[in-house]
């Protein structure tokens, strides 16, 4: 194993930060529903890819700027997420059963995507793909940079909302003890619908970023599950900033592994980190 050049290492770290931002963005909605609603929502990944394909469709077929789809898709997905939460609440789905039900929903979404856009790979070709900034010898591609900026901005915004607004405090109270929170006048059902809607809207934002930076295929939905779960577990359930920080740590670790050793070692990094945390700091994982 030869030590990589500083240039290679720097570029790899940048690459890791960028993909880590996307891990964090996808993980944010998943972690919030898991931590605050006690639902392991695998359909979140289906929503991410559905939004990615819709963004692809709107940009390639209808000529809409991919960033403009940020104005359209999140509100639509808010409604879809709230609708799904209403159904889950209506049938009193337990946390474990939510895993099975939302897995089923993801499979349905995958089939719908495949039915409409086929199983073939799709690539969103936009003018953003060719744009990049250069700092010294390092390159910062615009789509990746936008994804990171959005990820940081949204995570900070949600963190601030959770910490400083009445709404955020109500959500945290509801997560800690629903009946007591309800006794203090918190509308648990309404709050759940709103939170599920926001998380689905976050999935839409993540999907648009995914379409900007990655090649799409329906079967890729499940390829993201493991690493994003690791980011959520490491970052903390219900945490706004945790998945982003954990995502960046995982992304950089993977990228440096690829730069220093064989790239095929990279996928085990996220799970090794998770296992290490479980062994060394079990009290910090999933909290």
């Amino acid at each position: 194993m030869s030590w990589p050049s500083l240039n290679l290492l720097g570029q790899a770290i940048l690459s890791g930060i960028f993909i880590g931002g996307l891990y964090g963005l996808i993980g944010l909605g998943l972690g919030l529903t898991w931590g605050l609603l006690r639902q392991i929502n695998l359909a979140h990944f289906g929503f991410v890819f559905l939004a990615a394909y819709l963004s692809y469709q709107m940009a390639t077929e209808w000529g809409i700027d991919p960033l403009a789809t940020l104005l359209v898709l999140p509100p639509l997905f808010f409604l879809a997420g709230a609708g799904m939460q209403w159904l889950l609440a209506r049938f009193e789905i337990t946390p474990f059963n939510s895993l099975l039900v939302t897995f089923g929903i993801t499979v349905v979404i995958e089939s719908i995507i495949q039915g409409i856009w086929t199983a073939d790979f799709r690539r969103l070709e936009t003018h953003y793909n060719d744009q990049k900034f250069t700092i010294g010898n390092f390159y910062l591609p615009v789509p990746e940079l936008l994804t990171l900026l959005l990820s940081v901005a949204i995570a900070v915004l949600i963190w601030a909302a959770m910490r400083y607004t009445d709404l955020g405090k109500a959500l945290r109270a509801m997560a800690q003890d629903g009946p007591i929170a309800a006794a203090f006048g918190i509308n648990e059902k309404g709050m759940s619908l709103m939170l599920a809607g926001v998380c689905a809207a976050l999935a839409a934002v993540a999907g648009i970023c995914l379409a900007l930076t990655f090649t799409l295929a329906p079967s890729q939905i499940f390829a993201w599950v493991g690493v994003v779960f690791a980011a959520v577990m490491l970052g903390g359930l219900g945490s706004a900033l945790g998945p982003l920080v954990a995502g960046v740590i995982i992304g950089v670790s993977e990228a440096v592994t690829m730069a220093v050793t064989a790239p095929s070692w990279a996928p085990i990094v996220s799970f090794s980190l998770l296992i290490a945390m479980l062994l060394l700091r079990p009290d910090k994982v999933g909290r």
């Binding site: 990589p4 050049s5 240039n7 290679l8 570029q11 790899a12 940048l14 690459s15 890791g16 960028f18 993909i19 990655f214 890729q220 390829a223 993201w224 992304g251 993977e254 990228a255 440096v256 690829m258 730069a259 064989a262 790239p263 095929s264 990279a266 996928p267």
Partner: peptide, 20 residues
């Protein structure tokens, strides 16, 4: 000489190593 697992998401570091 590098190998990656099928389904690899991030080709940035591999591209950087080839360039290097």
């Amino acid at each position: 000489y590098l190998e990656w697992d099928f389904g690899n998401r991030d080709f940035g570091p591999i591209a950087a190593r080839v360039k290097d």
